[in-house]
Design a protein around this nucleic acid. Structure first.
Lengths: 281, 281
DNA sequence: AAGTGGTCTAGACCACTTT
DNA sequence: AAGTGGTCTAGACCACTTC
């Protein structure tokens, strides 16, 4: 990435009225971004503010891997000169990226690409907390890893074709030795080639860290649906509880850049001594 | 509120060093920002940035009822001149208040105090969504309203004394005629005087709207803990399901300005055709 | 001392709403 | 036309980190 490709305008009107310019105005060195075509007939093409365009450009660099998780990105001043905009505009773009947890600012040091290898955001995606005491990370036990063909429902949620290869993982997580979470995961086979039970067991730390480091896939957000269910025989046996024990059924779809789904997870949570915490604001 | 009492500085150092000023300095005419200097002793009492102080002042006006829910607050320019700071600083303060849903900006019209009487934020605190189709608001049936003395646990969560008066409400909410939510609520008696089953039944719309309008208490955030339980006989009967049916147990504490708890709610959700939705980001 | 992000200001113009 | 919030710029200084 060298030249800034940015459209400096806030609305279509200004351009049109000023002169008979095309709907897109290139800045010093480039053609426009978000410049929806140079069509003469424009049915309200909705332009973004400059900082939104800058934000999109930065996000592209994150997605393309130009800057990898944990790495330092260019300073605001440097990005400003690269994109030929003011530092304040870059700042506003990064403000939003920071609010969305895509990057992390550190005063005096710079702005870093967010990573799952940090205690800071360790509990962002682990919502099960103990009723008493402080949260801590569970122990991991991999039950099964296999490749299979995606059932229709799994394929639909992962946005792949039914029958496409997926990696299936079953694991049990325990707190202080007490089995509490039974997770079933389905991962797109095209992304997670070579994922084995050995690699999963070798890896200490959060699984999203492994996804990030070993498979170049950084998860940035997830959507969950929660229901109450009863343990059947198989589940009860794995969690060491009686059949019929009420459990939280947490179905999660995780996304990477560009709203691309990269994980489907079905968790069964035992909530005798833990609870799913949620802040509504 | 007339004069702005605002400390224009970013750290304690500047104050102490400049002179033997008190820790708070009124800004008659806008003394210099960040009058830097060398300090003799840094006790590190952590000063807030100017915009945080402005934010706190605005929040006070919200809390005191100077501006009521739904009302227009003074424009950014007016607040800037009132507090003797720049418009940009007021803007940054309001940016955060807006992000926290305490106020709502409307371009061209002004900034309004957030209210629960709006379709916009109707589903902010109703997280149960249908598995199929679009979300809609449930019908309400009040089962019981009574005053009682707060049990120890209820008192603890509401931050009142055990035995203090509380209003207890039980209601069932239905979607398309199907009973789905059984709510038990405990409200501090000191705030909710004169709350009767008639008033609850008269009132159409979200209960937080009634709290806001009739009792001057605006709920701004809530904390939930979710568990899986099984329906006992009483619950099963009210929800029209069999004993042992798994249900979500959602325990909520709601807060108004100043992190003051104003509601304790225990909801039991039937999740056969609905789910609790949650976005992790 | 130099470089980074964080705060504050001042001014310009745009987009939207109401008068 | 006037007033509001929204965007963009430019410059100053502060706080923090590293050299």
């Amino acid at each position: 990435m060298v030249g800034g490709f940015v459209v400096k305008l806030q609305s279509m009107n200004s351009i049109i009225s000023t002169a008979n310019n095309p709907t897109v105005v290139p800045t010093a060195s480039g053609a426009g971004v978000g410049a929806s075509s140079a069509s003469s007939l424009n049915a309200s093409p909705t332009f973004s503010p400059l900082y939104q365009q800058i934000k999109a450009l930065i996000t592209q660099s994150l997605q393309s891997g130009e800057w990898k998780p944990g790495e330092l990105i260019p300073s605001e001043m440097e990005l400003a000169s690269r994109f030929k905009v003011s530092q304040g505009t870059v700042r506003k773009a990064i403000d939003e990226l920071s609010a969305e947890n895509l990057v992390v600012r550190r005063q005096g040091k710079g702005t870093f690409v967010a990573t799952h290898h940090e205690a800071r955001s360790q509990f962002r995606f682990l919502r099960l907390a103990p009723d008493e005491g402080v949260p801590h990370y569970p122990e991991n036990r991999i039950i099964e890893v296999k490749r299979m063909r995606a059932p229709a429902e799994v394929a639909r949620l992962l946005d792949i074709k039914s029958g496409d290869s997926v990696v299936f993982i079953r694991r049990v997580q325990s707190f202080s030795g007490v089995p509490t979470i039974l997770d079933d995961l389905w991962l797109p086979g095209s992304i997670f080639k070579g994922l084995t039970v050995e690699r999963l067991n070798e890896y200490k730390g959060p699984m999203y860290g492994l996804f990030e480091t070993e498979f170049g896939t950084h998860m940035i957000r997830a959507s969950e649906q929660i229901r109450a269910v009863c343990a059947d025989e198989a589940v009860a046996s794995l969690l060491g509880v009686g059949v019929g024990m009420p459990l939280l059924n947490v179905e999660r779809v995780s996304f990477t850049y560009g709203d691309k789904p990269v994980e489907l997870r079905r968790g069964l949570y035992l909530t005798l001594n833990h609870h799913y915490r949620n802040e509504l604001s």
